[in-house]
């Protein structure tokens, strides 16, 4: 494996997203949403202004869980199939580069762009809020940013995988939307449905493990606080046992969600 080939591809992908202002646009979206939630999130209760980091993060989580998977899937779905359909893939593959180096370079470049926008967008808000936050709250906010990055990278990995499998861009975009629906909207409903139908008899024990099968749920669990009045904001994730809710363990699961789709993509892309 030649590192320079990977960085050349990754560098091009990253700078492409900087130059076409994709990074700027996404960072701005994150900043605007985070600021609005932090200052106007409690307007419904008749108050305006920053309340607490727990409420802010809980609201941000429920927003980010929709937004980041969608952005990541849209960013990555045409990584390979797009080059193939435009006709630029043959030329790339005729270079002294392996298919794995090309795939990894693509992923890392796109992941870099997404990570950069996430950290820039939420980081800016973090700096604005920092005057009102103690060290503990800042730590939680940092954890939220880090888990957002992991969430993005996991869905980007899924996007790149389907970009290898899909035969054309149209199908790839359809699959990307389907994946988003499944993981973000349908998965929890399905799990809840099974629980309710069986009266909690079936699946209750296995539930926490089933939730690890969805990176969006892992993200939610990573951001749970012990604060009781906030827990209700996290829905299904609150049934998660504390013993399993170790950040490092959940981080590892996220790493698995990044590595596994990429590995399948690499296997498939070999030929």
């Amino acid at each position: 494996m030649e590192f320079s080939q990977i960085t050349t591809i990754a560098g091009k992908e990253f700078w492409d997203r900087i130059r076409n202002r994709w990074v700027l646009a996404v960072a701005l979206v994150f900043t605007v949403f985070a600021l609005s939630i932090a200052y106007f999130g409690s307007a419904q209760q008749g108050a305006v202004g920053f309340r607490s980091i727990e409420v802010t993060i809980a609201s941000l989580v429920s927003l980010v869980i929709y937004l980041i998977p969608l952005i990541a899937l849209l960013l990555g779905f045409d990584a390979i199939v797009g080059e193939r359909e435009r006709g630029s893939l043959d030329l790339l593959l005729s270079m002294p580069i392996t298919r794995f180096e090309l795939l990894l370079g693509k992923y890392l470049g796109l992941a870099g762009a997404l990570t950069f926008s996430t950290i820039a967008g939420f980081g800016l808000v973090g700096i604005v809020l920092s005057a009102q936050l103690d060290l503990n709250a800042l730590f939680h906010y940092f954890g939220f940013m880090l888990s957002s990055v992991l969430l993005g990278c996991a869905f980007l990995s899924l996007a790149v995988m389907l970009s290898v499998f899909a035969s054309d861009r149209t199908r790839a975009s359809g699959l990307a939307i389907a994946l988003w629906f499944f993981f973000v909207l349908i998965f929890d409903l399905l799990v809840l449905g099974v629980l309710v139908v069986t009266g909690g008899q079936w699946g209750g024990e296995a539930l926490p493990y089933v939730m690890l099968l969805n990176p969006a749920d892992v993200f939610r669990i990573l951001n749970i606080f012990t604060l009781e009045d906030v827990r209700t904001l996290y829905g299904l994730a609150t049934v998660f046992p504390a013993t399993l809710a170790q950040p490092w363990l959940l981080g590892l699961v996220m790493a698995g969600w990044i590595a596994a789709p990429l590995a399948i993509a690499a296997w498939r892309f070999r030929r």
Binding site: S88, L91, S94
Partner: peptide, 20 residues
């Protein structure tokens, strides 16, 4: 593989380059 590729130049039919 790399040694051979470095000796070769290729122009595909209807070459597609990057517009940006």
């Amino acid at each position: 593989f790399r040694a051979v590729r470095r000796k070769v130049g290729y122009l595909p039919e209807n070459v597609v380059l990057y517009d940006n």
